[in-house]
Design a protein around this nucleic acid. Structure first.
Lengths: 240, 240
DNA sequence: CGGTCGATTGATGCTACTCAAACTTAGTGG
DNA sequence: CCACTAAGTTTGAGTAGCATCAATCGACCG
């Protein structure tokens, strides 16, 4: 079921009626699969649909004129890649597949009809975009004021919590197929520095990462280092 | 009219029916005025209403345990301070008045009814929150990859464009009543460094800033330094 | 006129960058 | 199955940007 991860996550946030799940599924077309490195959306595109990530890992990337690149968002299975394109229309960034990914799409026309006929569901989708914004704000705090080490620790905590909510992580481990260079572009640092910070996290006995599988060796201490408070992910059930 | 700036801005983004403006105004209560430094919303609050900024300047702030503070968003007249609290419920940051501000409020119940009865207007409010997220993403790019000077230049370009769209700036000047210390908390740098970069922008003949009034002396060159592209502010009219 | 807030300047040191090279791993074709 | 290649990771050395600490200066205000 392509909506598995999305539904699991949404149910963490608010009660969802059975027919609402069916409404979502009726809007989807696909699936389609892309290889790592594929640019799913290009800067300046005006797509007529939004994309739901079913499997894999994608990054929203902006590139400056000197080639420096910043990844402004990581999307995991169950996340919409560009639900905001429904309202924004023109995208100012590109979306790249960081590993092999599978997606399904939803036409903007369907979303528009949804706001007319299923206001509750529309509010839940609105919620998804405001959680994205809350994650953005945490990244701003990380980039602006957290040390490199805390920034990296925070990203591990956040990614674990998000994957766990989507039913794709155990209590202390999750799959993370990303290169250190891409990780550096997420954290706004050089790949060399990212590598050294990773070594420090390993040396401090906080994480283990090999073969695309991350283990949180001491989740409690990692959260302390990161000053991680998951409130912003809105994973408590409260209807709107 | 308390909605003046909001309506001016929204009309830049999409056609707005006269009765829709009336619907918004009917939801508002207030106005209320706060002195500079007042904390309008406290971290952890679960407000039952959202707040529209009518006049003044507010910042969304997160503070780390060592006291370092990051301002993650600047709100100007015509912006909702916390429209996202309608869906998020619990706020993980505080909102502070950076100078004397006037606000009006909208109960979340009214917003909920609005999504049931006025879907088009609901989409326009959804758009406001996705533009907030787009601004967040640009700040992430700034903090992660832009130089200090470009970061500051970008903020001046962005703030000018936003105020201009809300009918509160001329082609090359706008009011900006903020201390250098608060500006530093926006840009993720020390106040000393912010001061030195400001001197450089002045020395390079790019801006003039005195008495809370900013003049862009060479807007074209400032945009080049900042690599500013206003697409993300979605100031072209296109209905959704 | 002293006090407070904000802006400015100087000196010093750390964080993280850059460049460059070596090493490791995974994938490919003979 | 192994040599070869490409991609990714790791290490070292030198350096730039920015933080921190501390002091001074100017403007406004009771």
């Amino acid at each position: 079921m392509p909506t598995q991860a999305l539904i699991t996550k949404m149910v963490h946030r608010a009660p969802l009626a059975a027919d609402e799940q069916a409404v979502i599924e009726a809007m989807l077309s696909g699936p389609r699969t892309y290889a790592a490195g594929t640019e799913l959306v290009r800067q300046g595109d005006q797509p007529g649909f939004s994309t739901l990530l079913v499997a894999g890992l994608c990054g929203r990337a902006s590139t400056l004129s000197d080639g420096r690149r910043q990844i402004t968002q990581l999307s995991v299975a169950g996340d919409f890649l560009d639900l905001h394109s429904f309202t924004l229309r023109t995208l100012d960034h590109s979306v790249v597949a960081l590993n092999q990914t599978t997606v399904v799409t939803v036409p903007h026309d369907s979303l528009r009809r949804l706001t007319e006929t299923h206001p509750h569901l529309a509010r839940l989708l609105w919620l998804e975009t405001t959680v994205d914004a809350a994650i953005h704000r945490q990244w701003i705090v990380s980039l602006g004021r957290r040390s490199g080490l805390a920034r990296m620790a925070h990203l591990f905590c956040e990614t674990h919590a998000r994957l766990f909510a989507a039913g794709q992580a155990t209590l202390d481990s999750f799959a993370l197929a990303i290169t250190q260079a891409d990780l550096a572009d997420v954290l706004g640092m050089s790949a060399v520095h990212a590598n050294r910070l990773l070594q420090q996290l390993r040396q401090d006995g906080l994480i283990h990462w090999s073969g695309h599988e991350v283990t949180l060796l001491d989740p409690e201490r990692l959260r302390t280092v990161a000053e991680f408070d998951p409130t912003y992910l809105r994973l408590h059930r409260q209807d709107i």
